[in-house]
Design a protein around this nucleic acid. Structure first.
Lengths: 234, 234, 234, 234
DNA sequence: TATGAATGAGAATTCATTCAT
DNA sequence: AATGAATGAATTCTCATTCAT
């Protein structure tokens, strides 16, 4: 596992930017157009966070962006499409939250890696909490978004599964677990913890969350490593 | 763990029958009224499962129940309220899915208890899968339902936390875990597994799910017991 | 003008109990029925005063009267009809507010008679203010009630006109006035004063109102009499 | 009394253009929008006069204005609001009925001024009679309109009170009257006469009405002036 | 007399999207 | 690129009245 791999996180929502829409508008060519488009996206994020997706009115977005309703359709084909653009930006943040900088030394310590990944995930989630609620909303209502989210989760679970498999092969994890099923389950666990704490506002202490998530995850796969705390049971 | 404890399950939605409705409408007093009300609930469940909450039209429900639109308002104040009644009924099923009948012998085996609970939960979830999707939908859209669901989850997590605490006290579980945070996380994990499999249709084998969920859960809290499989590794 | 004549008042709503509805229900024969009917009327008045006519629901009335909706139709044919009954009772009060007992001596003083009549009218109006608002409402909305009210006003104006004619004949009032037109106008004036003060809540001092109404009325017809104050201009 | 004073009239509904709408909707910026808005108001007046307020359907208004229902909401928030606009226009007419053109010579004759004002008021009322019925209807049913009407009446009564006070000061009117209370009462009288004649259709001869109203009003305040008819009785 | 369940027509309102300017 | 006016389908909810028991 290299330093770059520490960007792996147990959330189920990480996914390389998918081609989310098919018939996208051509990007603006003039600087003015660029500015207008950016203003719309910024405005849309604010409005979506405030009102959710279904309650957000296009006119509120254009008013916030200080342009006319007609202009909206110069850049986007629909409300869904601008949400997609907003979510894409937020996803960039979830995916590359700035390198967690795990101590080089610690890179061999699977537990430390896991903990760093969890912390980074929770922090990123917290930054985007309001938008996650919007994601829940569209996932619940629009099959297209639901499917998109499902695929993202699956891709990511696959990645985590590879990680677990790797640990199993190295004799550091419970060999009886199906890596993919376990990865899916544990990713869901962490993502749900973040959802409850940050999106629903069931606030818990961040450190406590990191500790617990990491400990549960590590225990669950019976991770053992040089410095794994509490494993020195022999 | 006594026989009564076997009703504990790792889902995050179990909850002793809350007063889900504010009881605006007086319950019917005649048998005829009782019948009509029941017909409406049955019809509503069918329609909600078919169309989701927001797309379900009141007229479809009343047509299905073979009564007039006005009659609907004899028993419910709104679409939300009848959904509430539908969900309440489904919850009863989730809460009391018929006795799991854990072998008397096995009641002292925490692992077996856990497995039975998980199986019962998954089976109940499967029966109510379509409705769970509806629950997701309203939770995402209607704060009132979101809050209700949150409270349910919390109460149930508390129950599971007590279970974990009990095992810790008996020296059978990782003493370093915060019982409530751990219970919340693990309940979320199981519920998410069920959601993905049954609601989203990412079908997995039920037995496999039970085995994995139980194994992960047990591992996560470092459960050890007389017959716990996989612990006899020394 | 006898003592009984002092019940004449300048309002435009006094009218001997008209046959307000045509197809009335037969009156109850049993004592229980009598009680139920009375309870309904009492309840209806309360509800109408609270909610107005159009916002008043029959179910609120029957609930207040502690009987079922069906029972209502044992005694009344419609919401209009019970309002009619309520208004009839109130009218009795407006018509016979208890004898004003104008001093026998004063009965020859037209000014004192006028003042006593105005006072009695204002006081009766005040007692029934909320109901007057309801009367306005139905008059505005239901031609039948409007016509009924118009006829009442006309009958009463006729009565007042006779009074004015009488004074004219006795040389005590401006002979150039058309008695009926003047009576109609002045009745309207007093009734409007009461409406503004008591129904709309533009509260004015009752004594002040009586004084002003009487003075204006007396002035308007150039009433002069033995003791008329301020007329001693000769 | 200067020429400007001739705009005083005894109705109780005249009022300097109040901010009748809370200006929810931004006024149209294009000429096309202006046209559409005007068409809607014209149509609304026609429909309200035909059907009254509560029976008027929005679709009738938009059909009459030849636009879609959606367009209505571009300019108005509700049926109430467009009625408000209609009434505002009618009020302009009541307030500025075109100059009454009292003979210059006659401007010093308070009686002639009063008569001209009454005539102008009755004529304006007649033009707007159907709408006055609608005003009655909404005043009776909607507290907001009732309050608005009350305030209008009060402001206008104040104006008339000033007039009476002025005459009192000049020794031309009964000094014992409270100017405001008297003005309120007399304004109400004239407005009620107009209502009965034109709105309710208790038709009376216009000239007769003017003569009577003026005579009663003048008598009531004991107006005396150079050419006041009927005062030369000595 | 009393009950209370059943009826059902009817209208306001929203807002994403289009298009003429 | 930008504007903003126009579109119109689609659905909830009310409550006086009836009638079977």
């Amino acid at each position: 596992m290299t330093a770059r791999d520490t960007t792996k996180r147990p959330g189920d929502d990480s996914l390389p930017p998918l081609a989310v829409t098919d018939g996208e508008k051509a990007p603006p060519v003039t600087a003015r157009g660029e500015r207008t488009r950016a203003a719309l996206i910024t405005a849309a994020r604010r409005i979506f966070e405030r009102d959710g997706f279904s309650d957000a009115r296009l006119t509120d977005i254009t008013a916030e962006a200080k342009c006319s309703t007609g202009t909206f359709y110069t850049y986007f084909d629909s409300k869904e499409e601008i949400l997609d653009a907003v979510l894409a930006l937020a996803h960039e943040d979830m995916l590359h939250p700035g390198l967690p900088h795990v101590e080089t030394r610690a890179q061999d310590d699977p537990y430390a890696v896991l903990e760093a990944a969890n912390r980074a995930y929770f922090e990123a989630y917290k930054r985007n909490a309001k938008l996650r609620l919007v994601l829940e909303q569209v996932s619940a209502n629009i099959p297209e978004f639901r499917e998109k989210r499902r695929r993202r989760g699956q891709v990511f679970a696959t990645r985590n599964a590879r990680h677990i498999k790797d640990l199993q092969d190295r004799g550091l994890a419970d060999p009886d677990l199906d890596p993919l099923v376990a990865a899916t389950a544990l990713s869901g666990m962490v993502s749900r913890m973040a959802y409850q704490a940050f999106a629903l506002g069931d606030y818990a202490d961040l450190d406590q969350m990191v500790v617990t998530a990491t400990r549960l995850w590590a225990n669950a796969i019976r991770l053992r490593g040089p410095e794994e705390p509490g494993v020195s049971e022999s």
